[in-house]
Nucleic acid binder design. Structure first.
Length: 293
DNA sequence: ACTGTACCCTGTAGGC
DNA sequence: TGCCTACAGGGTACAG
């Protein structure tokens, strides 16, 4: 599920509950997810107080007051559920069971305020890693990451420089986390449609021979930002049998212009084309063959 | 160095 | 009802 907007929504859900709280319980229920858990994972977290809950790309980055950094990735199907008193709020993936699903509850964090934060992940493509305040940005997971798409570093000039000489297609280029960190399969399709660029266009066409950005690159950057901001404002996207639990999250899927709309007419004003689903690099791509060039 | 493919895992939807 | 296949928002490991 989670691309940058969804992870950001999860972060915003966890932060007010976790910030300043001491971890009084870490229940790790299996040896591995996508990767093995770190050695002595619970013991290295227990008793510490949470100093910050932040995000980098699709990673949640939780800093503890002793300098430990807990890095979490939700993979395809990870979600967090906060159980606090009688209230239960879920953040993240709702593709699968929306009810009790203890079978895939892999980690339970208990806070001093009594809240229980349950990590559930049926496909187990998520993972958790430990690092330190001084070292985590140099961790192999982060060392080669590209720029944050909502930060100042993303520019047409940056994209053009990264794209120069690249012969792969534009969609694969944008999915590459070393280029723009946090984009995923949905929002790449959406941004390319908004920018009227074909996902099959060669990535190098964002760059002129001298490495300067083309007009396509100039057009693409603001559309990437816009679609991500709009998704965050809408509380992220949720597919399939999503049900709202806190009344405020997860409606952007209703605003997709192309994703999941195979066979539907293009919504671009004046365009008479049809959205088609194709496959690139084993992933579904949705685009209008008429207005995206 | 690049580019493309196979693969990790479970659950769900749809065809028969 | 069951069986089978294809597909799902993630990233990595390898082969060429």
């Amino acid at each position: 599920m989670p691309e940058l907007p969804e992870v950001e929504i999860v972060r915003r859900g966890l932060e007010p509950v976790m910030l300043g709280q001491r971890l009084i319980g870490v229940d790790q229920r299996r040896a591995d997810l996508r990767f093995p858990f770190p050695e002595d994972f619970p013991a290295r977290l227990m008793g510490r107080t949470i100093a910050s809950v932040s995000r980098r790309a699709k990673y949640l980055v939780i800093t503890l007051c002793d300098g430990t950094v807990l890095i979490m990735h939700l993979g395809m199907s990870g979600r967090f559920t906060i159980e606090h008193g009688t209230q239960t709020i879920a953040f993240g993936d709702y593709v699968y069971n929306t009810g009790a699903d203890a079978k895939h509850d892999h980690v339970v964090f208990t806070l001093a305020n009594g809240a229980r934060i349950v990590y559930n992940d049926p496909r187990r493509f998520g993972f958790m890693v430990l690092s330190t305040v001084g070292e985590w940005t140099a961790h192999p997971l982060f060392a080669d990451l590209g720029v944050e798409p909502l930060g100042n570093e993303l520019s047409a000039t940056y994209l053009a420089r990264k794209a120069q000489g690249k012969r792969s297609d534009l969609k694969s280029f944008l999915l590459d986390q070393r280029v723009v960190a946090g984009l995923g399969n949905i929002y790449v399709s959406e941004a390319l449609h908004q920018a009227a660029l074909s996902p099959r266009r060669v990535a190098g066409s964002l760059s002129r021979a001298d490495g300067a950005p083309t007009l396509r690159a100039e057009r693409l950057v603001p559309e990437i930002r816009k679609v991500l901001r709009a998704a965050i404002d809408a509380g992220g996207s949720s597919l399939k049998d999503y049900r709202q639990t806190d009344g405020s999250s997860g409606g952007f899927q209703n605003e997709f212009a192309v994703y999941g709309r195979d066979g539907e007419p293009c919504q671009r004003p004046g365009c008479t084309g049809t959205i088609h689903r194709t496959v690139q690099a084993q992933r579904a791509t949705y685009a209008c063959g008429n207005c995206q060039r």
